[in-house]
């Protein structure tokens, strides 16, 4: 199987799916790069204690 290098990837048209921080998507979009933004944040805002509680409460 042909091994593609990272430079090959960047030679082609770039299509981006951005997850999380919307600022990255906005920057790419402003530079004319097609980008789809997916809103995502870590469960319970990244608070491990709260995330653990939520999991016990069945969320």
């Amino acid at each position: 199987m042909e091994q593609k290098s990272i430079s090959d990837l960047l030679d082609a048209e770039i299509k981006v799916v951005n997850v999380g921080l919307e600022g990255f998507a906005a920057e790419l979009s402003a530079a004319g790069v097609p980008v789809i933004h997916v809103e995502w944040s870590p469960p319970a805002g990244g608070d491990p204690e709260l995330a653990d509680l939520l999991s016990k409460l069945g969320a």
């Binding site: 944040s41 469960p43 319970a44 709260l50 995330a51 939520l54 969320a59």
Partner: peptide, 10 residues
């Protein structure tokens, strides 16, 4: 509105 879903999803 489920408080668990609010906190989980943000």
């Amino acid at each position: 509105i489920d408080v668990r879903l609010v906190v989980d999803s943000g």
